[in-house]
Amino acid sequence: MVGGTSVLKAETRTSWVREEAVLWRGLGTGVVILPPGSDTPSLLSGSAAAVWRLLAEPVDLPAVVDRLALEFGAPEHEVGPGIARLLQQLVKLGAVKARRGEEAA
């Protein structure tokens, strides 16, 4: 389980970015993605779609949390753990990759 401020600090040196091979389309505020290796498109909506849009360039977790907290008007400590979990899910799906030790945008 990922969560808390210490995790956010630990994640500052890891940046996250979309896998280039993902095919995708915008659908209103959502995003439909078809990651490599998957035959079934997935719909990302709400904050998940917002995260996807941020990940056009490499971004570290604190920056993502900061932007999402601002966009959705929620405290960082509340949105942080959820975003960390989402990123892990997107990595598992093959839609996003983590870059360790690289400078984030």
């Binding site: 095919l23 389309r25 659908l27 209103g28 439909v32 078809l34 079934t40 498109p41």
Partner: peptide
């Protein structure tokens, strides 16, 4: 509309693949 369009987009992405 969203349901119909989602199906169309899913097909588009599969065709691109």
């Amino acid at each position: 509309l969203s349901e119909v369009h989602l199906a169309a987009l899913g097909r588009d992405l599969r065709m691109e693949r």
